[in-house]
């Protein structure tokens, strides 16, 4: 009956700190039941955006609604409908996992008995039953992050915010968190995921916003973003590293685009406009000049390349690149 609402919707959001705007003209729309990735370097404004959307921080400009409620005027309603996981929200290290979940359950106004039952359910679901009575300080990184997720899931909120949920985790811990996120989405939860890891966004998110210096600089599905930013690319791997420079010049001429040189991998990479024709030209000219080619590959750009290109493009201040480096 009712028109389908956005799970998260922000228009012209701005937040100022002493040293300037951390977030400015920030727009975001997330469809219910999807994962949206908020991608950007350190200090880009990802955390500020999450803090505003989760009612932890007031904004100075614009409006934002989460689960249909205004974050500024109806903060309490919003807090009943969100879960927050990640660097901004932690659990108590001295309490056990079970004690943490019971405490948060009580603060969600579940009442002691229901909170205790819910704690047991969640420990079971996240594979923490056996360690439920140990102090959280003794947990591994992956276990702790799963407990974080469990704490955010006490009410099974329709919207979950995961703020860099895999920072500092080993590959196994990361895989555990990713699989938990997929389970959430299967249950119909909307997830806003902030990350610096492109792989993470690529694997989990249906739509992505790339954010830099407090603004969204690109938005779309991972595929759309890869398409929008330049076309396909050609990779050439040489047999002999000493020929790299000469080969780079040849490939640049054949493709008409600047060439990225990867010294260690003896790899040249360049954008191509006319796909196979450019590939053929490159291979032929390399062959004519007797440059040994080990491998040639025509491919879509990776999200890494998209990201670097977006955050380094000319419309931003020269500072941007140094921020990326930080």
């Amino acid at each position: 009956m009712a028109p389908t609402r956005k799970a998260i919707s922000a228009r012209g959001l701005g937040r100022r700190f002493k040293d300037g705007w951390a977030l400015r003209d920030f727009d975001l729309e997330v469809e219910p039941g999807t994962v949206h990735g908020l991608l950007g370097p350190n200090g880009a404004g990802k955390s500020t955006a999450v803090r505003v959307l989760t009612t932890l921080l007031r904004h100075h400009e614009g409006t934002a609604e989460v689960a249909g409620y205004d974050v500024a005027a109806q903060g309490s309603e919003v807090r009943y409908r969100i879960g927050l996981v990640g660097q901004n929200a932690a659990v108590d290290e001295i309490l056990s996992g079970r004690q943490n979940l019971r405490l948060f359950g009580r603060l969600y106004h579940l009442g002691g008995r229901v909170a205790a039952r819910r704690a047991d359910e969640l420990l079971e679901r996240f594979g923490l039953s056996d360690s439920g009575d140990r102090p959280v300080g003794t947990y591994s990184g992956g276990m702790r992050r799963r407990l974080d997720l469990a704490a955010g899931m006490i009410l099974s909120p329709p919207v979950m915010f995961l703020d860099e949920p895999t920072v500092g985790l080993d590959p196994r811990g990361r895989e555990e968190v990713w699989s938990a996120v997929r389970d959430l989405v299967e249950d119909g939860t909307t997830v806003l995921l902030t990350t610096q890891y492109l792989e993470e966004a690529d694997r989990l998110a249906r739509t992505i916003s790339v954010i830099d210096t407090g603004r969204v600089i690109a938005q779309g599905s991972p595929t759309e973003l890869k398409t929008r930013i330049g076309g396909d690319r050609i990779d050439v791997v040489l047999t002999d590293g000493t020929a790299l420079e000469r080969a780079a010049a040849l490939v640049a001429e054949a493709t008409g685009h600047p060439v990225d040189v990867d010294l260690e991998g003896r790899r040249l990479s360049a954008e191509v406009d006319d796909r196979v024709a450019a590939l053929t030209r490159s291979v032929r000219v390399l062959d004519e000049e007797a440059v040994g080619v080990a491998d040639v590959l025509l491919r879509r750009p990776t999200l890494d390349e998209v990201f670097l290109q977006l955050t380094e493009s000319g419309e931003h201040s020269p500072n941007t690149t140094t921020e990326v480096a930080r």
């Binding site: 009956m1 389908t4 579940l110 229901v114 899931m153 006490i154 119909g188």
Partner: peptide, 17 residues
């Protein structure tokens, strides 16, 4: 598209002041 979402976990309902 319907408004109700299927949820496999039955989450408890919080008390509201």
């Amino acid at each position: 598209v319907t408004e109700t979402r299927p949820t496999t976990t039955e989450a408890p309902l919080p008390g509201r002041p």
